[in-house]
């Protein structure tokens, strides 16, 4: 059976006055109906560009995309806008990073939800309104009848993100792309939104790509995790494997920079020194080498490729993955 979504060797670069910015460098992934893929990386890792490239939302005149993106077996990379528009909203939908700027500030909430319903599903005005109200209810918005006529500015951030989820789910898509859906929200609200997404996903048997900088967010919610760094996939594994057999020092570093309840108070969080490399002129070797505590000569010279690990489905791009290094240290 063909997977719902298959991405093969996807490259994305942006033309800038100073040269090409290679934001995504050869990413492959696949996703089955009903499963969740987590894409993790710090800002600038290319995860947002990747998600937008998969959807086909990047501006054509400045972004060059090569490789392959297949949805239900059909090639959609660089497909004409008219063709993509048939997928957008109805097959693939997106929840954006910032609920403050992603809703149109001058249109009422109701209009922004019913719009897609009326266009894609040909509903009448009253049918659309009814559906929209039930959607608002499903995403947990109290007194939806009043909210229906509100402007985005009259709602809190959490409420707006719920509205955005309602818009994304309006036409029952098969694949939901959630790009940092909780970044701008309070911690308590973050958990609510993520739980809401999981619940709705299971109810609807939807596939989901959850893009985040926070390993904790995907730890309990994703079936598989991809770790990105400087436009490259540096490690990918089923969730439980990743957390038990972590091989790439960057993944370890990401985990180390997360606060945990089990830590005694005043524990110093590990920070990753330095900055991600300049994507205009990436270094010759491993992109993480300049910041990697274990980096050796080879790391600076040659770029590691993704190799299969011991467990099926686990691969990493590292010359000296953690278990090997530990062995070297003990011997």
């Amino acid at each position: 059976m063909t997977p719902l979504l298959e991405v093969d060797d996807l490259h994305v670069s942006f033309a800038t006055p100073r040269g090409a910015v290679r934001a995504v460098q050869g990413v492959s992934l696949s996703l089955e109906q009903g499963t969740t893929l987590g894409i993790v990386g710090e800002s600038g890792s290319g995860k947002t560009v990747l998600s937008r490239a998969i959807m086909g939302l990047l501006p054509r005149h400045s972004a060059t995309q090569t490789g392959s993106v297949r949805y239900q077996g059909n090639e959609i990379l660089n497909a004409p806008n008219d063709e993509l528009r048939q997928l957008w909203g109805t097959h693939i939908a997106m929840v954006f990073q910032d609920p403050m700027t992603s809703l149109n500030p001058v249109l009422r909430i109701g209009r922004q939800i019913t719009e897609t319903l009326r266009i894609h599903l040909d509903l009448t005005k009253s049918e659309a309104k009814e559906t929209a109200l039930s959607l608002l209810m499903q995403v947990g918005i109290p007194s939806p009848v009043e909210r229906f006529n509100a402007y985005p500015g009259q709602l809190s951030g959490g409420m707006r993100q719920r509205v955005m989820i309602a818009i994304a789910l309006a036409c029952a898509p098969n694949l939901l792309m959630a790009d940092e859906p909780t970044t701008g929200l309070d911690v308590t609200v973050q958990a609510q939104i993520l739980d809401l997404l999981s619940t709705l996903q299971h109810e609807r048997q939807m596939a989901m790509i959850l893009v985040t900088h926070d390993l904790g967010v995907v730890a309990t919610r994703a079936d598989e995790i991809i770790v990105m760094y400087a436009g490259n996939v540096v490690e990918r594994a089923p969730t439980n494997v990743l957390f038990t057999q972590m091989s790439m020092p960057y993944t370890e570093a990401l985990l180390g920079s997360m606060p945990r309840i089990s830590y005694p108070s005043h524990t110093r969080l590990l920070s990753i020194d330095g900055r991600p490399p300049d994507l205009l002129s990436p270094p010759a070797g491993c992109p993480f080498a300049p910041r990697c505590p274990y980096a050796q000569g080879k790391c600076h010279r040659e770029k590691p490729t993704l190799v299969e690990g011991a467990v099926p489905g686990h691969s990493y791009a590292c010359w000296f993955p953690l278990p090997i290094r530990e062995k070297a240290a003990t011997s």
Binding site: V12, F14, T16, V21, A23, S43, G44, S45, G46, T48, V49, R52, S62, Q97, D98, M100, T101, T183, G184, L279
Partner: peptide, 10 residues
């Protein structure tokens, strides 16, 4: 924070 990284870079 709200601008996609690559676009921000551009």
């Amino acid at each position: 924070q709200i601008t996609p990284p690559a676009i921000a870079a551009t």
